[in-house]
């Protein structure tokens, strides 16, 4: 009971409201006799699908860089990986492995550049990151049209040039992880492979933060002066944190795309950072503090909320409000974190 109390206290008012709201929606769904099994299965899928993307924010916060609104930078790397593997007509695990390798590799290279840039703009990482993200998405819009991909599944059939807006992955490796070891309990379908991949990523990242370099990132993120006095170079730990974050962003979108079953290109990743950032914040993180618990809990709560909101809203007022509500909640919680209320002291 006492633990419960301190937990609620730590959550703060705004986050408490969101958690309560999610619970309320579930109750309403149950009362309205919606298909609970289906809903919970969807929640699980969405949780696993977004997991690594949310996880990618953790090194960034821990490294003292704030919230990574430049997430699209990593995401674009991952998308290049996926498109590359599909272009080679690779299917199944081969395709997934190539996508992860190419996307992740690119993520590391681009992450180093991004980290170098962020070291030059210390103190303004968030706003610079936001616009670097926007700019790279719009740059890639040009690139998607001009890059010499030629696989007919990827390219507009009429023009014979330029990638399609969305590319189905049914024939390659769509939902391959979701279906791995998946099982059904009652009405609930559990995408075991997907969730396992997320948890494995979490464990690896948690272990990384227990190594010398991981500890150095934490130290420099929390207190630069302390770090310097212990001969840690903050610019290097920041670079490492940014690179790790970008790498995870790339991996995250590959996992996301295979679970979603489509690759979405062009302007699709433009706003991706905001709901993802909202996830970790709802979990209880702030601009300067974040833990693995915040990642997992936040992802679970927010993705469940989004899943269950649409059918419930349809029952009551109409579905188009959920889009507006999503905008209000995700940006509301970011605003809440930016103005520093409810930050853990």
């Amino acid at each position: 009971m006492n633990q419960c109390k301190t937990f609620i206290k730590q959550l703060g008012f705004a986050r408490g409201v969101i958690v309560a709201f999610t619970v309320l929606l579930f109750v309403l769904a149950f009362v309205k006799d919606l298909q609970m099994g289906q809903l919970i299965s969807d929640c699980l899928s969405r949780f696993g699908r977004h997991g690594i993307l949310v996880l990618s924010l953790l090194p960034f916060v821990k490294g003292g860089l704030g919230l990574n609104f430049g997430l699209p930078v990593g995401v674009l790397c991952g998308l290049v990986g996926v498109v590359f593997s599909i272009n080679l007509n690779l299917a199944g695990y081969d395709g997934l492995a190539v996508a992860l390798a190419v996307g992740g590799g690119l993520g590391i290279v681009i992450g180093l550049f991004y980290g170098w840039l962020l070291n030059k703009v210390k103190g303004q990482e968030m706003v610079v990151g936001t616009y670097v993200g926007f700019a790279s998405v719009s740059f890639m819009c040009l690139a998607w049209m001009m890059l010499p991909f030629n696989n007919p599944t990827l390219v507009w059939s009429i023009a014979g040039k330029g990638l399609r807006m969305t590319i189905p992955m049914d024939d390659t490796y769509g939902r391959i992880l979701d279906n791995l070891w998946s099982f059904t309990v009652g009405d609930i379908w559990v995408p075991t492979g997907l969730i396992l991949s997320f948890l494995v990523a979490c464990i690896l990242v948690a272990l990384f933060f227990k190594t010398r370099h991981g500890m150095a990132i934490i130290a420099a993120g929390q207190n630069e002066k302390f770090a310097i006095a212990s001969s840690i170079k903050p610019n290097r730990t920041r670079l490492l944190a940014t690179t790790l974050s970008t790498f995870l962003g790339a991996i995250g979108i590959v996992i996301y795309s295979q679970s979603y079953g489509f690759v979405q290109l062009y302007t699709a990743p433009l706003m991706i950072a905001f709901p993802i950032v909202a996830c970790i914040l709802i979990g209880g993180a702030g601009i300067r503090t974040a833990t693995m618990f915040h990642v997992i809990f936040g992802c679970l709560v927010f993705q469940s909320l989004l899943t269950v909101a649409l059918p419930v809203a349809n029952e009551f007022i109409g579905g188009d409000i959920t889009e507006a509500a999503r905008i209000v909640i995700s940006n509301g919680i970011i605003l809440y974190a930016l103005v520093g209320v409810g930050a853990q002291k």
Partner: peptide, 17 residues
């Protein structure tokens, strides 16, 4: 669109730099 975002990104980065 790229130009609009790019200009803002560069201006912000240069200023912070």
């Amino acid at each position: 669109v790229f130009v609009a975002y790019g200009v803002i990104a560069i201006a912000l980065a240069l200023h912070a730099w």
